[in-house]
Design a protein around this nucleic acid. Structure first.
Length: 587
RNA sequence: GCGGGCGUAGUUCAAUGGUAGAACUCCAGCCUUCCAAGCUGGUCACACGGGUUCGAUUCCCGUCGCCCGCUCCA
């Protein structure tokens, strides 16, 4: 086997994807459209195999996960509840000097976090800036830190104009005075260079559309930016019809849409993309404690091979991380190419308790394939608030466990939970109301969310599979063989079938017969044209793991040759043995 | 959205103010008893739209797309 050559530049892969029919630019005959990609004959098989493998492992092989296939367009209120309507339309500013783009509501925060901000804070001296120092700063250090700041570009005029107003003023006002050519109209400075920011402009990260024939603001709806929300919105229907109870999960695969600022890196960041999401609902830790007496955490070093009754959210979260990593290994991504990135507490969304990114080392950098978040009961709570429908479940074991406690034990438990919640900055009253519900066997489930991108994974599999290797023929001529070493389980075409020669009718007929048999079980490819070696190489570029050739010996003893993509070795075996071998490799 | 670079067959590259050329690929035929062989023939391109010009693939403008950087990434 030759040395796998990593895809150094994405261009080579993009070119192969087009040449072999994996991925095309959307609407290419019209010049293409930025951020949208189509999957050709091989690409759609690859994606289909990814989806099927995911579904198999997440739904079919489990008894505690069921499926859902919801619409892309939902009631707009769902997006209000989820928070997307607000967070996906953040006003953005551009700096007129350095041209950087940033969220308008974060500029002060960014300033507070950087060197420029620190330097200005020092200069501000709690509202008692020294005018000499300010002037010195503008002529000195400020030139490096804030080349765009008005007071740096033009210190004499600006400092004269603001005069004594610098003293005794608040920090933001102080900075704004330095940032403005016109002290009457204060501007907010760019946190990067001190330059003038444009007025905040709205950015719409969700695609809008109109439902119904009348184009009226009341009819605005959105293409979903994630599939997860429909799972939460259908939570009650699924739980009442599926005979599942917490802990259990709802899985969904489907398209999502985000009006990305910058689609980049081939299909990696697309505006239309496909997600594979699981929302796995679990009991709140407090319920586990009532039922089991104690909550298992990672500190207990739990065995993660099979779920246990006493697992708290932390263990469930870790369990899903391990499950997902095992799946990536199974479909052919080596451990060495995967990175587990545990988000720092300050990076987490406010409702998230933990989030792990599973990242892959793409040619353009280590980037996220999947995020596994512990989202507490945030989502269901939001939908409960906005829809007015209760998202509480009734948990019989919990009610029975609570019934065994006497008044004193209940009070002690309530006190303990109230104290814990207070420690996390939550209201003690809420904690007591929550505990009262728990004693009735009721709670809003918490959720662990493994959310993966189909397109990103397809790209990772392509990058991982791509290899170039030198091949020397009998005459000593060396050429480069391009081969996609997909795991057979996700390879778009499993078996290619070739008659050794096409102008021998008996050979041809036998080959067609065998092709017909294999075709019923696997995605097969028929190729009768060109030299046999050429046909093998074509299949190498498509990533087809096996090629079966029917030759004259087949007519005599019924055996065929099976050629292995990776080793290029051949073995001769009967058709029955061939099927068995393929079964072993492909299922 | 901003700045820079780029845009010629499927791919990789030429040439040109006067109707675009090659290699490989692809297709067909012949040949061929296992790794891109050979022979013959064939298909396929100046991203799109304006402008200048007798004439534009070439010069100019705009749009779109791709790449790089900034930015965004619940």
């Amino acid at each position: 086997m030759g040395t796998p050559a990593p895809v150094g530049k994405l261009d080579t892969l993009v070119s192969l994807c087009k040449r072999r029919g994996f991925i095309f630019q959307s609407s290419e005959i019209y010049g293409g459209i930025n951020g949208f990609w189509d999957y050709g004959p091989l690409g759609c098989e690859l994606k289909s195999n990814i989806r099927q493998s995911w579904w198999q492992s997440m739904v079919r092989l489990r008894e505690d996960v069921v499926g859902l296939d919801a619409t892309i367009i939902m009631h707009p209120a769902a997006w209000k509840a989820s928070g997307h309507l607000d967070t996906f339309s953040d006003p953005m500013c551009t700096c007129k000097s350095c041209k950087k783009l940033m969220r308008a509501d974060q500029t002060w925060e960014m300033l507070a976090d950087n060197e420029l901000g620190a330097s200005l804070t020092e200069l501000h001296a709690n509202g008692q800036p020294d005018s000499g120092r300010v002037e010195g700063w503008c002529n000195g250090r400020g030139k490096g830190l804030a080349p765009g700041l008005a007071a740096v570009r033009n210190p004499d005029a600006v400092l004269a104009a603001v005069g004594t107003r610098l003293a005794g003023t608040a920090f933001r006002n102080f900075v704004s005075l330095l940032a403005s050519e016109n002290p009457a109209a204060l501007v907010q400075p760019c946190p990067h260079c001190g330059g003038e920011l444009t007025e905040p402009r709205p950015f719409n990260l969700m695609f809008k559309t109109i439902v119904g024939p009348v184009e009226d603001p009341a009819n605005v709806a959105y293409l979903r930016p994630e599939t997860a929300q429909s799972i939460f919105a259908q939570f009650l229907n699924v739980i009442t019809t599926s005979r599942q109870s917490v802990p259990f999960g709802i899985a969904q695969v489907g398209k999502s849409f985000r009006n990305e600022v910058t689609p980049r890196n081939f299909t990696f960041r697309s505006r239309e993309f496909e997600q594979m999401e699981l929302e796995f609902f679990i009991r709140p830790d407090e319920a586990i404690e009532l039922i089991c007496g104690r909550v298992a955490t990672l500190a207990d070093n739990p065995d993660l091979s099979a779920p246990q009754e006493n697992w708290g959210w932390q263990v469930w979260h870790k369990y899903w991380v391990e499950q997902r990593l095992a799946w990536y290994r199974r479909i052919g991504l080596p451990d060495a190419s995967l990175v587990q990135y545990w988000q720092e507490p300050k990076e987490l969304a406010h409702y998230a308790r933990a989030c792990v990114d599973i990242q892959y080392a793409f040619p353009f950098g280590v980037q996220e394939l999947e995020g596994i978040a512990a989202r507490s009961d945030f989502d269901l709570t939001q939908h409960q608030k906005h829809s007015g429908k209760t998202m509480e479940v009734f948990d019989e074991p919990l009610k029975l466990a609570a019934a065994k406690l006497d008044e004193a034990a209940r009070a002690a438990f309530a006190d303990k939970v109230a104290a814990e919640w207070a420690g996390r900055g939550k209201s003690a009253d809420d904690a007591r109301a929550f505990v009262a519900k728990l004693f009735e066997g009721r709670y809003i489930p918490h959720v662990i969310e493994p959310s993966a991108g189909v397109d990103r994974l397809a790209l990772a599999l392509l990058c991982n599979a791509y290899a170039e290797e030198p091949v020397t023929d009998d005459k000593g001529k060396t050429e480069t063989r391009v081969v996609l070493r997909f795991s057979p389980r996700i390879a778009p075409v499993k078996v290619a079938v070739f008659p050794l020669m096409k102008n021998k009718p008996e050979l041809y007929a036998k080959a067609r017969e065998i092709f017909g048999q294999l075709q019923r079980r696997w995605n097969c490819f028929w190729d009768e044209s060109g030299a046999i070696g050429r046909r093998y190489r074509r299949m190498d570029e498509a990533g087809t793991p096996f090629c079966v050739t029917i030759d004259f010996q087949t007519l005599e003893d019924g055996t065929v040759t099976l050629r292995d993509r990776d080793t290029m070795k051949q073995e001769r075996l009967s058709v029955a043995a061939l099927k068995e071998k393929l079964d072993d490799s492909l299922i």
